[in-house]
Design a binder for these strands. Structure first.
Lengths: 257, 257
DNA sequence: TGCGTCATTATGTCTAGACATAATATGAGG
DNA sequence: CCTCATATTATGTCTAGACATAATGACGCA
């Protein structure tokens, strides 16, 4: 620890990050205040603040005014996933890529905007390896109505025609609703607890029910592995269902409209 | 555009971000130099630099010394995925969660460290909804040898025992190798091209072969939808295969050791 | 007990200026 | 046409100081 680094901010950041990842500083642990860190590392407070800010961005640290900086509680589980451009990925392996559209349907939804639904198959070396069902909101991407998805895969087309399509895609497990990005057990504010939860300075017993009644719906037993919704900003423009399964065993049976 | 914001850095950031997301500034477009932006927004250059730094972190902007700042080229495709703690997710729906281990096997691999392989089923409201096959590197997580995975699901155990397990999970599509986080067509340096690619000041024709010979291996036709590898830092400690399919149709057939 | 006020504390952000550094353009000399 | 050295440019980072702000504890009053 505290090894040489190109610049102070980076050194501080890596130093603290190492302590957190190693478990030396456990979630909830209070990190020394910025002035002390600045003195310890021999730099300005702004430099320490910058380092801590990066750790906040990385989700490793939480900061609260007056309270201080703390090691963050790990998110329940999150993953960064890369869904590469299939054509490019296959090409990089030296195999030929091919897209074959099976069905292109324009749906007129009562009270809602039209959608375009495209079913097709991705081939690598002339062997199918993925089924795709893509739904595109025509209200959001009117140009898609003119596109020829018999020739070009929807993903390829979207990537080329939507600025920053990849802005904020939302992913959910099949049948399961997307979970909140972060979830943490919330306890009623108690005075002696580690300062991990913000406490308003209320001394009256502001009653907060521990849980709201959950909507008790039956879960749709998931037939599909993963579904993706591509959203550039907040609006959902496209919805993707991808089956990376052995195509011969699932094709006809699962892809019912 | 240029609407009021709590602080200058944020205003600049949002202003530029809006232009990028709207497509007004397309990928490769040069962003005015920091001094000019500082003058335009009436603030110090450090403030502009901070705003641009955040946009770099968000992947919207690229900066190069001497060259300037540019609107980044969108990544091929990336998504942020949330894989919630199943037990918690089910509980939130008001249904009972149950884990049932089916097989726990310790594998001795020649020349490599032992691994623990756990197969099991996740139930919600006494109905199976996911199969899990988890492989844990015992060299990385020796404590896992003592854990009772008949009682506790591996994911739950890992989340509780590994500090920052969720650090940097790597996800790949079934059968497909994880793709590089970013890929971009690389052109030979030419003088008049938009300055999107770093150019060394070589005037000689430093010969660069357009592509290196790809390893031509047959792709393993993917039977499984997604596999996850949990890596706290760089080391891979656990490997997860999850089938969110209708369990009755895939169970016995697919889960061969 | 309950409520408002105030001082304290640690973070949040900004500024003006400085120096470092990488990438590039230019020119000298072969 | 090539190579090397040099100047230029725009970013990268830091500093010291300043003021703003949110959260909190302490205190006094009803």
């Amino acid at each position: 620890m505290t090894r040489a680094a190109p610049n102070p901010a980076r050194r501080i950041r890596e130093d603290i990050e190492a302590r957190i990842r190693s478990g030396e500083w456990k979630p909830g642990t209070r990190i020394p205040i910025e002035q002390e860190l600045a003195a310890r590392y021999g730099c300005a407070r702004a430099t320490v603040s910058k380092a801590l800010g990066e750790l906040v961005a990385a989700g490793l640290v939480e900061r609260r005014r007056k309270a201080g900086s703390f090691v963050a509680h790990p998110p329940v589980h999150s993953a960064v996933m890369t869904v590469p451009d299939l054509a490019e990925l296959i090409a990089a392996r030296g195999e030929t890529y091919r897209w074959e559209a099976r069905a292109i349907v324009r749906r007129k939804n009562v009270g809602e905007a039209d959608t375009l639904q495209i079913d097709g198959i991705h081939f690598a070396a002339d062997e199918p390896f993925a089924l795709e069902r893509r739904t595109i909101e025509l209200a959001e991407v009117p140009a898609a109505a003119e596109a020829d998805f018999a020739v070009e895969a929807p993903g390829t087309w979207l990537l080329a025609h939507i600025p920053w399509t990849s802005g904020r895609p939302v992913v959910g497990g099949g049948g399961l609703p997307p979970a909140p990005p972060r979830h943490r057990a919330r306890r009623p504010a108690r005075h002696a607890c580690p300062p991990a939860f913000p406490r308003r300075s209320i001394r009256s017993g502001g009653r907060v029910s521990g849980r709201d009644a959950p909507a008790r719906r039956r879960m749709n037993s998931a037939r599909y592995p993963w579904t993706f919704a591509l959203c550039p900003a907040e609006r959902c423009i496209s919805h993707l269902l991808m089956l990376y399964c052995d195509i011969n065993t699932v094709a006809e049976h699962d892809l019912v409209p």
